[in-house]
Each structure stands twice: as structure tokens, then as C-alpha cells.
Simulated assay, not measured.
Amino acid sequence: MSVLSMRARVSKNIGLYFAAFLVASFIVTPILFALLGGFKDNAQLGESPMGLPSPWNTENYTNVLIDLTFWRQVVNSTGIALATTFLTVGVGAMVSFVFARYAFRGREVLFMTFATGLMFHFAVAVLPLFIILRALGMLNNPLGVILPQVAFGLPLTIIILRSFFRQIPGEVEEAATVDGASPWTFFTKVLLPMSRPVLATVSVLALVNSWNNFLLPLVVLHDSSWWTLPIAVTQFSGQYASDTAKVLAFVMLAMLPALVFYAFAERHLISGLTSGSTKG
């Protein structure tokens, strides 16, 4: 590509680049403020909220990292997020396989029933859900968080996976059947390996949504030993409301695992979301 064509391309898309820079600034600025604020004390935050720490104070971060309660909350969030992701993707893949590869009466009606789940936010169902979980004895139980998260995560997972599974050529399934593969073998040995990008996409979405979920764990997990990080952030902010720097350090450490995971998974997320539109 010549220099002139590169300049023409940049000039043509300068508005898009500016918009992207503006959006990125809105996203990065709060994170940078929290990161640097955790290395300050309250006096530095008052004098220079956006400046570099002088001197750098690591005590806020180290105090959080040596707290066993923080690590218990990390384990709680990790366990609930991984279980939610495994069940959401596993169940969603099997249901999507049936919707995509089998024709039966009422299939589209049943699929639309799943799809309408996107119209309902968890907050709408919080009261009946609380009553059901209490009747089942699932309050203060991680399953009381995991199973509803799976239920609310399935609609989007099924829509994405079904669209991808339907684009797998029928000849692939016919060849597997000729070779003696059962439907289950075709699903596990052929279809799932071919669907790794889109499986990674729905896994990222399910895991990040679970990690950031606040309302459901707040309603279900009353015992502090089961608290997840979003609840812990609220509790910590209230306990140390006068120590803003310490709160910023805790918030940053609570955000860090999700940020790191998303940074590594971003390539798979983008490729999975675009793979459906590029396959013939």
C-alpha cells in the first residue's frame, strides 16, 4: 500500500478514529484514576486527583492482598463464574445443536420462547426468584446464584450458537454419519471442535457477566463467607468510606481478574462474533 493511499484512508476514517479515541478515553480514564489513586493517600487525592502519586504508597494494595477475606471472595467469584460458564455453554450448545440440526414440529415456537428471555432483566424476576429459592432451601448456597445465572444466560448463548451451528455444511454431518458417527459423536467430536471461536465468545460473555453480577448474589448470599467481589466492594466502600484511596485500591484489585481475562480473550470474542457473518 502506497503512502498516498494510506493517507487517503486515514483522512477518510478520521472521524471514526476520533470517535474511537473518545470512547476509549471515557473507558480508560476511570480505570487509570482508580489505579493511580490506590497508590496515593487521601491528602494526595485531594491535592492532585489526576496526577502521579508522590510518593508512591503501596500500603493500600498490600493491605488488601494480605487479607484472607479478600482471597475467599476471589475464590467465591471464580468458582461461581466458572460453574456458571460451564453449565451455560454446555447446556446452550446441546440445545442449540437440536434447534440447528433437527426439524420438528414447534421448533421455531420453542426457539422463540428461549429468545424472549432476552427481553427480561433479572431485576424484573428478583422477587419471585427469591421466593422460589427460599422454598427450595437454596439461599446462602452458591447454586442459588449459579442456576439463575445459567437460566438468564441461556437465551443469548442459544441464539449465538444456533446461528453458527446452522452454517456448518450438511455434507460434514453426512460424511460423519457415513463413517459410523452417531449424532452425539458428531456433536462432540466434529461440531464442537469446529465451533471453538464461537464457544470462546459465549464463554467470555457468560464468565464476565457472572463475575460482574451484583444483584443476584446480594439477594441470595446473606452469609458473608459466601460473598462475591461485587458485594465485597460495596461492603468495603461503606466500611472505609472516609479512606477513598484504600477503597480505590480494593476496587482496582477486584476489577483486575476480569480485565486480565478479557484482555486475553478479546481476540476470541471478536473472531467468534464475526465468524457467523463470514462463513458461507
Rank of each mutant, 00 (worst) to 15 (best):
E47S: 12
I27L: 14
L205I: 15
L82W: 02
T274I: 14
E174S: 11
F70M: 13
F152K: 04
N141S: 12
W56I: 15
N42Y: 05
R72W: 05
K246Q: 10
L139D: 06
F261M: 11
R267I: 10
V23L: 14
L215Q: 08
T84L: 05
D223H: 04
L22M: 12
V109C: 01
V3D: 03
L269F: 15
A83E: 08
L207P: 00
V75N: 02
M50W: 15
T84R: 12
F99C: 03
E173K: 09
A232C: 04
L45H: 03
I131G: 00
L253G: 05
A20W: 12
L129W: 05
M50V: 14
L207M: 15
S48K: 14
L22F: 14
L156G: 01
Y17M: 11
S2G: 15
V124P: 03
L218K: 01
A100I: 11
G106R: 10
T278V: 15
L256Y: 07
G106T: 09
S2Y: 10
G46R: 13
V220Q: 04
A8I: 12
G238K: 12
T244H: 11
V247Y: 04
S225L: 10
G79E: 04
L191I: 11
G272R: 14
L82N: 01
A254D: 10
Q44K: 06
L22E: 01
T228W: 09
S96H: 06
L215P: 06
N140P: 10
T278I: 13
K12C: 05
F264T: 05
L133T: 04
Q44S: 08
M94K: 02
G280L: 13
A175H: 06
K189L: 13
V202M: 07
I270E: 05
G90Q: 07
L4R: 14
L52V: 14
T157G: 02
T113Y: 09
T84D: 05
T228G: 07
A20N: 11
H268S: 15
V126T: 06
T188R: 14
V172T: 11
A265T: 10
A24K: 03
L161H: 03
L36F: 13
M112C: 07
G238C: 11
L161P: 03
I168Q: 04
D243P: 00
V75S: 05
N209M: 09
F130A: 09
W227P: 01
N213Y: 01
I80W: 07
F261G: 12
P257I: 09
L199E: 01
D223F: 07
L259P: 01
L133W: 08
N13G: 02
